[in-house]
Design a protein around this nucleic acid. Sequence first.
DNA 1: GTTAGCACTCGGTAAAATCGAGTGCTAACA
DNA 2: TGTTAGCACTCGATTTTACCGAGTGCTAAC
Lengths: 349, 349
Amino acid sequence: MARRVKTPPQPHSGLDARKATILEAVVVEHIDTAQPVGSSSVAHNADLAVSPATVRTEMVALEREGYLAQPHTSAGRVPTDKGYRYFVDHLKAGELGLAQQQQIKEFFSHVRGEMEEVLEQTSTLLSHLTSYTSVVVGSAHSRSTILNVQLVNLDAHHHLLVTVFSDGTVTKHSVLAAFEASHVEVTEASRQLNALLIGTTLDAVVQVPSRADTIAKLVRESVSVLHAESPTLEGEQVYIGGSSRVAEVFDGVETVRKVLAILEQELLVVSLVEDILGKGVSVAIGSEHGFEPLSSCAVIVAPVSLDGETIGAVGLLGPTRMKYPEVMAAAEAVSHHLTRHFGGEDERG
Amino acid sequence: MARRVKTPPQPHSGLDARKATILEAVVVEHIDTAQPVGSSSVAHNADLAVSPATVRTEMVALEREGYLAQPHTSAGRVPTDKGYRYFVDHLKAGELGLAQQQQIKEFFSHVRGEMEEVLEQTSTLLSHLTSYTSVVVGSAHSRSTILNVQLVNLDAHHHLLVTVFSDGTVTKHSVLAAFEASHVEVTEASRQLNALLIGTTLDAVVQVPSRADTIAKLVRESVSVLHAESPTLEGEQVYIGGSSRVAEVFDGVETVRKVLAILEQELLVVSLVEDILGKGVSVAIGSEHGFEPLSSCAVIVAPVSLDGETIGAVGLLGPTRMKYPEVMAAAEAVSHHLTRHFGGEDERG
DNA sequence: GTTAGCACTCGGTAAAATCGAGTGCTAACA
DNA sequence: TGTTAGCACTCGATTTTACCGAGTGCTAAC
């Protein structure tokens, strides 16, 4: 699924302390106000003991180096993607508001149910916490082994193949047979399927009986249906929370439309998240991810793991001028809680 | 203000032929242009052999009777909800474009897979067909009987209860036991559960064994987990297609936000659709459904049935000035095809 | 009942005027 | 050499004004 190479964060050259302070001040204020930031407010705001004029000369330099941009002459400065990147890279560990910590704790102490439900509710939680749109991805189970298979007959021709995997996921597949099969035959086929499949993974090839009787045909049909499962499509669940936030945090109908259109395509969302996914909390700003229609967005992703393996991810999507510290902290906190939730004392969905 | 002779408000039925023609012309043009419609364009457009002045007098009457409204003096007229209602009620059977008929046929001849997937893809189809946001609801299965139950153990304490219903749906529930249970015990519990539950419905109470051994405890735990299932929440699937359309067809960020926020809440959507659901294609315009935040929307709903019973619905959501004829035709066509698809020759998900 | 004629209304648009935040530059200063 | 005050200048945003014209309601004639 993940195709593109991730661009490693540029090792930023210089930027002496004062330039860094100024850049940070610009980013912070612009995130807050959504307006271009002028030299005087920076001079006041940050505890630089310098005049606006000095700030201005520094800003010219920052602009030349690509950290800031000017919407037009005689306007304040606005951070570029590169500016945000610097800001994010030099962020000290974000702090999460007490209220939000409380909310997370509360949520995870009360939540219960299957993994699917937990993930779905988590996406709602995340969007409430951050007021951005959230994306929660539960990864595919193609590596899991089969714990149990059951062929259930609906009527003479229609059967349902229900498969339980070791990671707790369950799939069902219709098996439509051209021939009639009795209840007894289906039960026997079910038994044989279990003998064949238990312990194997989906992509493992199994030896199917070549006999021509009803039972063998049922078994063959079932196995082939199971193998036909597209490994990419199935099992990769996507839960999107707070899509209405898109209309709040982006301006411009066209942008809103584009972002919503992307969110509709779950496959795209999955690959986007997986591209960005790194070891800890990862951020893709503006054009850093390859998705042109999302060039005005920033995406924050944190992994969720079980037994050391990444089994999913939580993500947040907002404008490039999003509240990075809080949102990154929230993503990290939730990803931690989720990891503990699935790995730990509780049921494993 | 000059007081005129009061004419008692006409009961809905009235509207002589000419008024009806004028109203229809206004509705059609306003749906097309989104602009207030003036008397002269109506006089031209509709094949009335009358002058704009006459149209104007009629419009005054239509306004007095509540079918039309004026955004402000010296602007054209705009249909009210009542106006749209009249239009819809007096619509002759809508005709569907050939291209769209083709698209539907194509879709249903190729689509396959479980009901869930079909419904999901249908929602995408609908939104493509109509360029509005679509809602597809698959109704709950609480009335179905249980065909098969399987208790699978993940490890000593975690088990998974997988239930197959006669309508082809499958549910899973985690069963977390405080005590250890062996593979053999779980298998036996599974067997007993099948004996107990096959053929019953979810809300039927079953006699559970009162013994204190591991197997009996597993059985009791499983049955209670199954009964704990909220009958409203489970099984009622909602698929929303083309939510990005919201940003296209509504104007005003606030409206977009509100509509998206509603769509996020699946329960609300289900109850909205079920409220509107009638025998054939039903329409709710503006404030006709009780949802205040959707007062600028119209919703079109058509039922999907299996064996004479309603098992779901397809819906379309757009602004009150939506293209009723086409959209109603599309909803009807798709609902028909779906009904046939599930009832007929194909697999039944 | 219908229509032409007409004065009137009022939102929308465009041109003009104004404002002011913010800039870049220069010259003086530590 | 780096910093700063001073200053002229820029240019988007806002307000003001003027104006157009689509569309109306009314009236008087057909």
